[in-house]
Protein backbone atom coordinates (compact mmCIF):
# COMPACT_ATOMS: atom_id res chain seq x y z
CA UNK A 1 0.00 0.00 0.00
CA UNK A 2 2.91 2.36 -0.33
CA UNK A 3 1.99 5.42 -2.34
CA UNK A 4 5.39 6.97 -2.11
CA UNK A 5 8.57 5.49 -3.44
CA UNK A 6 11.92 5.90 -1.80
CA UNK A 7 15.13 6.43 -3.71
CA UNK A 8 18.23 7.39 -1.73
CA UNK A 9 20.30 8.04 -4.85
CA UNK A 10 18.29 11.15 -5.57
CA UNK A 11 18.07 12.50 -2.05
CA UNK A 12 20.90 14.98 -2.24
CA UNK A 13 19.80 16.53 -5.51
CA UNK A 14 16.20 16.75 -4.45
CA UNK A 15 16.21 17.59 -0.79
CA UNK A 16 19.60 18.73 0.50
CA UNK A 17 18.94 22.43 -0.07
CA UNK A 18 15.53 22.22 1.48
CA UNK A 19 16.79 20.37 4.54
CA UNK A 20 19.75 22.71 4.81
CA UNK A 21 17.54 25.79 4.92
CA UNK A 22 15.29 24.13 7.43
CA UNK A 23 18.28 23.43 9.64
CA UNK A 24 19.99 26.76 9.26
CA UNK A 25 16.95 28.63 10.52
CA UNK A 26 17.15 26.49 13.66
CA UNK A 27 20.84 26.11 14.47
CA UNK A 28 22.30 29.18 12.74
CA UNK A 29 25.68 27.62 12.21
CA UNK A 30 26.47 26.57 8.67
CA UNK A 31 28.87 23.78 9.49
CA UNK A 32 26.63 22.28 12.13
CA UNK A 33 23.74 22.51 9.70
CA UNK A 34 25.69 20.66 7.02
CA UNK A 35 26.61 17.91 9.45
CA UNK A 36 23.03 17.56 10.63
CA UNK A 37 21.77 17.26 7.05
CA UNK A 38 24.36 14.61 6.31
CA UNK A 39 23.51 12.74 9.51
CA UNK A 40 19.88 12.84 8.53
CA UNK A 41 20.53 11.18 5.18
CA UNK A 42 22.62 8.46 6.78
CA UNK A 43 20.07 7.85 9.52
CA UNK A 44 17.29 7.77 6.94
CA UNK A 45 19.17 5.18 4.96
CA UNK A 46 19.44 2.97 8.01
CA UNK A 47 15.77 3.16 8.81
CA UNK A 48 14.57 2.92 5.24
CA UNK A 49 12.52 -0.16 5.98
CA UNK A 50 10.48 1.88 8.45
CA UNK A 51 9.34 4.13 5.67
CA UNK A 52 5.75 3.18 5.10
CA UNK A 53 5.02 5.43 2.19
CA UNK A 54 2.27 7.25 4.00
CA UNK A 55 4.01 10.58 3.87
CA UNK A 56 6.15 11.93 1.10
CA UNK A 57 9.86 11.25 1.17
CA UNK A 58 10.53 14.87 2.02
CA UNK A 59 8.18 14.94 5.00
CA UNK A 60 9.74 11.76 6.26
CA UNK A 61 13.26 13.19 5.97
CA UNK A 62 12.20 16.36 7.76
CA UNK A 63 10.81 14.35 10.64
CA UNK A 64 14.19 12.63 11.03
CA UNK A 65 15.99 15.95 10.77
CA UNK A 66 13.82 17.44 13.52
CA UNK A 67 14.99 14.70 15.88
CA UNK A 68 18.58 15.38 14.87
CA UNK A 69 18.21 19.08 15.66
CA UNK A 70 16.76 18.29 19.09
CA UNK A 71 19.58 15.81 19.75
CA UNK A 72 22.09 18.46 18.76
CA UNK A 73 20.74 20.89 21.34
CA UNK A 74 20.67 18.18 23.99
CA UNK A 75 24.27 17.36 23.29
CA UNK A 76 25.59 20.91 23.50
CA UNK A 77 23.63 21.59 26.67
CA UNK A 78 24.57 18.43 28.48
CA UNK A 79 28.02 19.65 29.45
CA UNK A 80 27.86 20.73 33.04
CA UNK A 81 28.95 24.20 33.90
CA UNK A 82 27.79 25.56 30.62
CA UNK A 83 24.46 26.20 32.24
CA UNK A 84 25.99 29.03 34.18
CA UNK A 85 24.92 32.32 32.71
CA UNK A 86 26.94 35.44 33.12
CA UNK A 87 25.47 38.72 32.11
CA UNK A 88 27.39 41.89 31.81
CA UNK A 89 24.83 44.61 31.71
CA UNK A 90 27.18 47.28 30.61
CA UNK A 91 30.35 46.67 28.76
CA UNK A 92 30.99 49.95 27.07
CA UNK A 93 31.55 53.11 28.96
CA UNK A 94 29.54 55.23 26.56
CA UNK A 95 26.18 53.90 27.66
CA UNK A 96 27.11 53.59 31.31
CA UNK A 97 24.34 54.78 33.57
CA UNK A 98 21.66 54.31 30.92
CA UNK A 99 18.48 52.59 31.93
CA UNK A 100 18.55 48.90 31.23
CA UNK A 101 15.26 49.20 29.37
CA UNK A 102 16.92 51.35 26.79
CA UNK A 103 19.35 48.63 26.05
CA UNK A 104 16.96 45.85 25.14
CA UNK A 105 16.78 44.84 21.54
CA UNK A 106 14.63 46.98 19.33
CA UNK A 107 11.28 45.20 19.11
CA UNK A 108 10.74 46.49 15.60
CA UNK A 109 14.05 45.25 14.42
CA UNK A 110 13.21 41.61 13.94
CA UNK A 111 10.28 39.91 15.56
CA UNK A 112 9.71 36.22 16.03
CA UNK A 113 6.86 36.53 13.60
CA UNK A 114 9.18 37.87 10.95
CA UNK A 115 11.46 34.91 11.24
CA UNK A 116 8.56 32.54 11.26
CA UNK A 117 7.15 34.08 8.14
CA UNK A 118 10.53 33.82 6.50
CA UNK A 119 10.67 30.12 7.28
CA UNK A 120 7.25 29.61 5.80
CA UNK A 121 8.21 31.58 2.75
CA UNK A 122 11.29 29.44 2.33
CA UNK A 123 9.15 26.34 2.56
CA UNK A 124 6.77 27.71 -0.04
CA UNK A 125 9.61 28.51 -2.42
CA UNK A 126 11.10 25.04 -2.11
CA UNK A 127 7.69 23.53 -2.56
CA UNK A 128 7.18 25.38 -5.82
CA UNK A 129 10.72 24.63 -6.91
CA UNK A 130 10.12 20.92 -6.45
CA UNK A 131 7.16 21.10 -8.83
CA UNK A 132 9.31 22.37 -11.68
CA UNK A 133 10.95 19.97 -14.13
CA UNK A 134 14.39 19.01 -12.89
CA UNK A 135 16.35 20.98 -15.47
CA UNK A 136 14.32 24.15 -14.95
CA UNK A 137 14.69 23.89 -11.21
CA UNK A 138 18.43 23.45 -11.48
CA UNK A 139 18.96 26.41 -13.79
CA UNK A 140 16.64 28.59 -11.76
CA UNK A 141 18.38 27.66 -8.55
CA UNK A 142 21.86 28.33 -9.90
CA UNK A 143 20.90 31.64 -11.43
CA UNK A 144 18.52 33.04 -8.86
CA UNK A 145 19.54 31.62 -5.51
CA UNK A 146 23.21 30.89 -5.94
CA UNK A 147 23.66 33.89 -8.21
CA UNK A 148 26.01 32.36 -10.77
CA UNK A 149 26.88 34.25 -13.93
CA UNK A 150 25.19 33.18 -17.14
CA UNK A 151 28.43 31.90 -18.72
CA UNK A 152 29.27 29.78 -15.70
CA UNK A 153 25.92 28.02 -15.81
CA UNK A 154 26.11 27.57 -19.57
CA UNK A 155 29.52 25.93 -19.29
CA UNK A 156 28.49 23.79 -16.38
CA UNK A 157 25.31 22.47 -17.96
CA UNK A 158 26.48 22.65 -21.54
CA UNK A 159 23.68 24.84 -22.86
CA UNK A 160 23.63 28.05 -24.89
CA UNK A 161 22.82 31.42 -23.38
CA UNK A 162 19.56 31.75 -25.29
CA UNK A 163 18.66 28.27 -24.13
CA UNK A 164 19.29 29.36 -20.56
CA UNK A 165 17.06 32.40 -20.86
CA UNK A 166 14.22 30.33 -22.27
CA UNK A 167 14.51 27.96 -19.32
CA UNK A 168 14.69 30.87 -16.89
CA UNK A 169 11.63 32.44 -18.45
CA UNK A 170 9.59 29.25 -18.09
CA UNK A 171 10.80 28.68 -14.56
CA UNK A 172 10.00 32.23 -13.49
CA UNK A 173 6.55 32.08 -15.00
CA UNK A 174 5.83 28.80 -13.21
CA UNK A 175 7.30 30.00 -9.93
CA UNK A 176 5.32 33.24 -10.03
CA UNK A 177 2.16 31.31 -10.78
CA UNK A 178 2.85 28.88 -7.95
CA UNK A 179 3.69 31.53 -5.35
CA UNK A 180 1.07 34.00 -6.43
CA UNK A 181 -1.82 32.70 -4.39
CA UNK A 182 -0.24 33.05 -0.99
CA UNK A 183 2.69 35.37 -1.27
CA UNK A 184 2.19 38.14 -3.79
Amino acid sequence: MSNHQINPNKWIDLYSDYLYNFTISRVSDREVAQDLVQDTFLAALKSMKNFKGEASERTWLISILKRKVIDHYRKINSNKGKAEVRITYNNDSETEGDWLEERVADPFDKTAEDTMQNNELGDAIFNCLSKLPEKQAEVFRMKTIEGYETEVICNELNITASNLWVIIHRARTAMAECLKENWF
Binding site: S16, D17, Y20, N21, I24, Q34, V37, N118, L121, G122, I125, F126, R141, T144, I145, E146, R172, M175, A176, L179, K180, W183, F184
Partner: peptide, 17 residues
Amino acid sequence: NNSQLTKIIYKAHIECL
Protein backbone atom coordinates in the same frame (compact mmCIF):
# COMPACT_ATOMS: atom_id res chain seq x y z
CA ASN B 1 4.92 39.52 -11.17
CA ASN B 2 8.51 39.01 -12.17
CA SER B 3 9.91 41.68 -9.90
CA GLN B 4 7.62 40.49 -7.12
CA LEU B 5 9.16 37.04 -7.46
CA THR B 6 12.66 38.47 -7.24
CA LYS B 7 11.68 40.42 -4.16
CA ILE B 8 10.24 37.51 -2.20
CA ILE B 9 13.11 35.21 -3.05
CA TYR B 10 15.46 37.87 -1.78
CA LYS B 11 13.32 38.26 1.33
CA ALA B 12 13.38 34.53 2.08
CA HIS B 13 17.18 34.50 2.51
CA ILE B 14 17.48 31.08 0.98
CA GLU B 15 20.87 29.49 0.93
CA CYS B 16 22.04 26.55 -1.08
CA LEU B 17 24.76 24.11 -0.31
